[in-house]
Each structure stands twice: as C-alpha cells, then as structure tokens.
Design a protein around this nucleic acid. Structure first.
Ligand SMILES: [Zn+2]
Ligand SMILES: [Zn+2]
Ligand SMILES: [Zn+2]
Ligand SMILES: [Zn+2]
Lengths: 163, 163
DNA sequence: CTGCAAATGTTATAATGTTGCAAATCTTGC
DNA sequence: GCAAGATTTGCAACATTATAACATTTGCAG
C-alpha cells in the first residue's frame, strides 16, 4: 500500500483524494459491494476535507450541489462506508474521516489536533497489543477499540500564542 | 485507596456508592470546590447505576423525585463532576459513569460490555505509555486520551445465546 | 449589611441521529 | 427480455443529545 502524506504537510491533495477513491472502488468491487454515486460522493467529500466532517456538514455540501438529500441519505452512506472500512467515525468529535489504511485489517488510533483540527490515523500494533493484554487480564473479550488522542500536532505546538 | 469490586461481581453496592460519595466530598473540600446538593445527587444517581447513565436518564430521575430540573441543570452538574475527575463521559455511549480512581491522576481505559452494559474502568500505565510513545513518534503532544473498548465481559461470554 | 461571584432556574434552540414507509433501481433466474 | 425479489433511495416525521442567553437566587467576604 502506498504511503500517504501527513495531513498537515503540504501535498497534492487532489491526487491524495483520487487515490483514496480508486482504492475504495477496488475494495468494493472485491467484496461485491455497490459504491453507488451518492456513497462515492460522500466518501469524496470526506476525503476532500482534511478535517473530520460532521454528517450535517456532508449533508450541507450535498444540498448545495443540488442533491436532494436528507439526513438519512448521509447516515446511510456513512454506515455503508464504515461497514467496508472506508471511513471512521471519531466519537469524540461526532465526525467522520477517511480511513488511511482501508483494506488493511486494523484498529485505528487517531491523533486529533485541537488547534488546527487535523487528524492523523495511526496503526500501532504495540498499542493494540497493550490494550488487548490489559483486556485479557480482566477476561474481557474486546471487539472494537475506540482510541482518540486529543492534543497538539507538531505544526501547532509552536503556534500556541495564536490561540 | 481502597480496591473496588468489579461491577459485574455481586457486592454491597450501597456501600460502594456511599464510599464514592465520601471520597468525592473529601476531594472537593480539599480543592475548595462546592459539592452542592444537586451535584452530589447527580453523582449519587450515576454511582447507583452500574451502567453508564445518559444525561437525560439523570434528568428523568431528578424530575421523578420532584426536583425542578432542566437539561442545563444536569449538564452543569456533569461538567463540574468531570472537571474534578469524579465522573467520566463515555464518548461512544454519550453517557456518564462514576470514576473509580477519583483523586488519582490517571487516564481511564474503559471496558464496555455490549451485552450487559457494565463498564469497567482500568488504569494501565503500560497502555498509556504505549499510546504516548506512538504519539511522540509523530511529534504529537497528547493532552487527553479517549480509550473505550467494546466487547464482552467475562459473565457475558458464555451467555452469548441469550442475545 | 452590602456587594460580588458562583450557582441555579427558565425558556428556547441547536446539533446529532433514527424510524417507517413508499418509490425507484438493480439483480437474478427464467 | 421479463417478472420476482432484493437493495437502495426519497421523504416526512420524530427522537436524542447538548447549548445559548438571560433572569434570579444563594453563599461568602469585607
Ligand atoms: Zn483506518
Ligand atoms: Zn494542529
Ligand atoms: Zn477515572
Ligand atoms: Zn457483560
């Protein structure tokens, strides 16, 4: 899988988005899942934004481009995209972000900058292992891990005075 | 600090609650914070429930006992209790649970049973360290960690057929 | 007592997410 | 191609969670 630019580093974002879409198409084809136009457009809108988008943000964008959309339109698309591992929901933000490791079986760890709003998704097996060990010690059988770290990204640490 | 019974193990829950309240009073006194009757009652209601309570669950209980309460009443009490580390908000449930390590500086890790709804709060330095190391490797400065693990508690693993 | 700050009451509203059902669209076997 | 069934979408209403704004009351210091 290709490496991706960090969200807060300058990069060709259009290419970054279209690559994500291409991968999504491939994943859906492989799993016999239908990446319909609405679903694809929702995924694209989420990818175009570096910061996680709320469901109603997505809805507003769809509406503004003439799509006759209502909340269920968006939530259904988001459910689909989550189901196939193409987006993640960030519980602490009530928002959605494109998965940067789609297709790879993983539990994401999210570094969320409280200043600029950018989110970096990591895949750290050492963290996952530590969590699973801690759960095992309590005889707990984990199924889904929500791990969201709020703080300051490298670019915003020196910018503290801008707050 | 006293050890606490696991939530899904039978125990004297009234004692468990009153101990938590006594500790809360001590903590507030030490910090010159006012644990007013409403705040104390909200904390008690949350502790009395083994499962995390939603803000509107708390509101309903207050209302049912004659308290003239509105949503801000509850949210303000919850804000206060969170601020002094007496309750935690579980982002993946939009609900609140009593902190079992109040007074100890910690980041909680929550094991949430999807079958019975009980939540166990752990304090695992190995997990916290792994997370901080992963953040450091990205030059990210963590401030708050949300770690919630959904799965099956020991008691519910054999009960799968009851679902 | 007086004046200030903290806490609470009260009303309204914002933000987020769901249910239920009908219409349209796609797929599949023939 | 075509009918039957499954999936997806449109649409309206509703449910849940959280906050804003401002008036009133309460606790406390001087
Ligand atoms: Zn991911
Ligand atoms: Zn930043
Ligand atoms: Zn805690
Ligand atoms: Zn359980």
């Amino acid at each position: 899988m290709s490496s991706r630019a960090l969200p807060y580093r300058p990069h060709n974002h259009a290419a970054c988005v279209s690559q994500a879409l291409a991968e999504a198409k491939a994943i859906c084809q492989q799993q016999n899942a239908r990446l319909t136009p609405t679903r694809e457009r929702v995924l694209e809108l989420i990818w175009q934004s570096h910061k996680p988008l709320g469901a109603y943000d997505v809805l507003a964008k769809l509406t503004s481009e003439g799509h006759n959309a209502a909340p269920p339109t968006v939530y259904r698309a988001l459910d689909f995209l989550q189901q196939y591992g193409l987006v993640h929901r960030i519980a602490s933000l009530n928002a959605f972000t494109g998965c940067t490791h789609a297709g790879e079986h993983h539990t994401g760890m999210f570094l969320i900058c409280r200043a600029c709003g950018n989110v970096l998704e990591l895949m750290e097996s050492s963290v996952t292992t530590a969590i699973e060990n801690a759960a095992s010690a309590e005889a707990f059988q984990p199924e889904a891990i929500t791990l969201e770290v709020a703080g300051l990204c490298p670019g915003c640490q020196t910018d503290q005075h801008h707050e």
